[in-house]
Design a protein around this nucleic acid. Structure first.
Lengths: 133, 133
DNA sequence: CGGCATCCAAACTGATACTG
DNA sequence: CAGTATCAGTTTGGATGCCG
């Protein structure tokens, strides 16, 4: 019973396969940086501050497997490897760009909400016990 | 040096704060299922097959902290807790819906790419040794 | 029912060394 | 340069039991 309305996410729902594969921050960031043009491994790494070489390798391989990125070995010495977004990967740009635009637009609201939440935690009750004085 | 072009993601770039917080599959799925209306904890859990209670609790808290979801305790017995998408959270729907639509539209292409990739791995070279017959 | 505490196993990190 | 491999240390995950 592949229950696949957007109101429910069975683990056998086709959309889940993709949520599990590409809905993560590194995949999204890689596709965004590769949109500007092909990049070599370390060039990608430099642009994604904080990513480990292991995580990046895994993520690039997964993107390659899913047909969103292509990997091309340039047989010079020392060897160079270039990663390029595929036409299929490029069709993912509009949704990602929309997400990116949302983030830039709503960041202040999110930060305000976060500060309000943290303040609520610090003073959890209106009948707070005044430990000071 | 808050390097914040979309071509590069410094860890101190504001957009990174949001990529780190909401660009994960559970957050996205929660916001999609809550779009239809408020839901109680276990109702959300049932709709996200495979999520653990621990992961769901963490994720809902993070969404609450970021102002995308609100949490309301209904003091009946046994206690009920209702999660509702906030107006801010609702503004995230268009980007997420776009992503969801992309997944449904391009799933066949991705699956084809995946199979091609896996086949390439199984027979890595064109000068393959014919072990059979 | 919602969700926190606990325990253990699995995954990930960061550093470093090694290869083609 | 672009990886793979390894190892110790930390984080995360799943499973279970308990509480209001």
């Amino acid at each position: 019973m592949s229950d696949c309305r957007p109101e429910s996410f069975s683990s056998d729902c086709p959309s889940r396969l993709l949520f599990d594969q590409i809905a993560d921050k590194w995949s999204m960031m890689i596709l965004v940086v590769l949109d500007a043009g092909p990049l070599r491994f370390n060039a990608v790494k430099r642009r994604l501050e904080g990513v480990t070489q292991k995580a990046l390798t895994q993520c690039l391989r997964r993107l390659e497997r899913n047909g969103l990125v292509s990997r091309r070995v340039i047989p010079i010495s020392p060897v160079a490897v270039e990663y390029e977004i595929t036409p299929l990967g490029r069709t993912l740009q509009p949704p990602f760009k929309a997400l990116y635009a949302w983030m830039m637009a709503h960041l202040p609201e999110v930060e305000a909400a976060r500060q309000a939440f943290d303040r609520r935690l610090a003073a959890p009750s209106s009948v707070d016990i005044r430990l000071d004085r």
